[in-house]
């Protein structure tokens, strides 16, 4: 029985095994390759997407668990009129190196900021467990703080 889900605002009906991980449905069935395969065991976070706004590691999430829900991938993060604040900060801080982990990193950070708009370093340490082999962590942290500060300024003004 086909599984229906919404990906980046668009409805999809997928006729594949319900136990197929969401990652492969996104990449191979729907053709959204921005979400990456890194480990297949939810250890690295390269496959992070949002499921109804919450971050999930799509490499271990069965498609059935996404049925009827709304998925946002890196391709859907940009809003009307341009890149999201996280994406903009990523360019400003020149965060990516090889970039392979960064789709997942950006999705994890976007979710973290949605939950905790002004995270402390401890919040970041606890909330972000994505692996980056290029070692972009210092820039990830700096970019998060900049976003948090500019958001705080906006709400203060």
């Amino acid at each position: 029985m086909p599984i229906t889900l919404t990906v980046n605002g668009k409805a999809h009906m997928l006729d594949v095994e319900p136990e197929m991980p969401l990652l492969w449905a996104l990449r191979e069935t729907i053709g959204l390759t921005g979400t990456k395969f890194g480990c297949g065991v939810a250890a690295c976070g390269a496959c992070t997407v949002h499921l109804d706004g919450r971050p999930v590691r799509s490499c271990v999430l069965p498609l059935s668990a996404a049925g009827g829900k709304s998925v946002t991938t890196i391709e859907g993060l940009a809003q009307e009129g341009g890149l999201s604040t996280v994406q903009q900060a990523w360019i400003a801080h020149q965060v990516p190196q090889c970039g392979y982990c960064q789709s997942g990193m950006i999705m994890a950070v976007a979710a973290l900021l949605a939950e905790t708009p002004k995270p402390t370093d401890a919040d970041i340490d606890a909330g972000l467990t994505n692996i980056c082999r290029c070692g972009t962590f210092a820039r990830v942290r700096a970019a998060i703080h900049e976003i948090a500060n500019s958001t705080a300024e906006e709400s203060a003004s």
Binding site: L32, G34, T73, L83, Q87, I91, Q94, V95, G99, Q102
Partner: peptide, 18 residues
């Protein structure tokens, strides 16, 4: 600004796996 970075924040960068 590095030339490759914009494609690495929106999922459009093409790797062999893609």
């Amino acid at each position: 600004k590095r030339l490759d970075i914009p494609s690495k924040v929106d999922g459009s960068a093409m790797y062999a796996i893609d």
